[in-house]
Simulated scan of single mutants.
Amino acid sequence: MTDAPGKVLQTLVALHVDSLESTAARLDLDSVMQVANSIAAARHVDIYGVGGSGVIAREFQGRLYRIGVNAHAWSDVHEGLTSAVMQNSSSVAVGISSTGRTEETVQMVSQAGASGAFTVAITHDADSWLAGLADVSLATAEPSHYLRPDDLSVKHSQLLVLDLLYLLVAQQMFGEASTRLAASAMAVSAHRRSPRAPKPASIAAEETR
C-alpha cells in the first residue's frame, strides 16, 4: 500500500461515513423502539459479545448502568451461560456479533432465550445463526473489503445502533436517568483536574516563531 497519509485518511472517512449511513438506512425503527421499550422495562439486561464485540458490549453496559438499568456484560461463555440460565420473561438478552456466527455469543443468547428472556441480535447478517434465534435482529453495516476483518467502521456502526438504543431508553427514564447521571458525574468529579490555565500571550507568540 503506497497511498499518501492524506489519501488514506480520506478513504477511511468515506468508509466510516458510508458504514454509518448504511446502518441508518437498514435499521427498522419499529424494532429499535421495541428493544428500547423492553430494556427500559426489564428487571435484568445481559449483553453478550466476544473479542471486539465484547468491548462494545461493555461500553453499552456501562451506559445503561449509569442511567439505572440493571445491565451486565459477558464475554466469557461460562459466566455468560451462568447468567443466561437465570433469566426469565422480565429479562432482556442482547447479543453483539458482526458476523452473527460467533459460537459463544450464539450459545449465550440461545440459553437466555430458552430461559424466557426477550432476545436481541445486533449483526450485519440477517440470515446468521444469531439473527435467526433472536426475537428481534437489528442490522448493522457489512464490513468493508478495504480493511477486513478488523474494520473499525463495523464497530462504529454497532455503536450507532447502541447509542440510539441508549438515548431512547434514557428518554423513557428521563427523570431517573438525569438524576443518576448527575450523581455519577459528581462521584468522579474529584478525580478530574481543573482546566489548564492558558499560556500568557507573550509565551504563546514566542513559541510560534
Rank of each mutant, 00 (worst) to 15 (best):
V120H: 02
T119G: 08
H156E: 14
L159E: 10
A121I: 11
P143E: 15
A139F: 09
Q171G: 06
S110T: 12
G113F: 04
E142G: 12
L138P: 02
H124S: 15
L181S: 06
G132E: 11
S137R: 09
L138S: 07
A185N: 11
S144E: 12
A170N: 01
T140A: 09
S144D: 14
H124R: 11
V106W: 07
L162A: 01
A190Y: 08
T119V: 11
E176N: 05
T140P: 13
D127Q: 12
G175K: 05
L168R: 03
Q107G: 03
G113Y: 03
V188N: 11
A183N: 13
Y146C: 06
A187V: 12
L181P: 06
L160Y: 04
L152D: 04
D125W: 02
L133D: 00
L152C: 06
H191R: 15
G116N: 05
V109F: 10
Q111Y: 04
P149S: 10
V120K: 02
A190N: 14
G132D: 13
L138K: 05
T179P: 00
S153Q: 05
L159D: 03
D151I: 07
A170M: 01
L152F: 11
Q158M: 07
A114K: 14
S184Y: 13
R148E: 09
L138G: 04
A139L: 15
A112H: 02
V188I: 15
V154G: 07
T140I: 15
A187M: 15
D125Y: 06
R180A: 06
S157N: 06
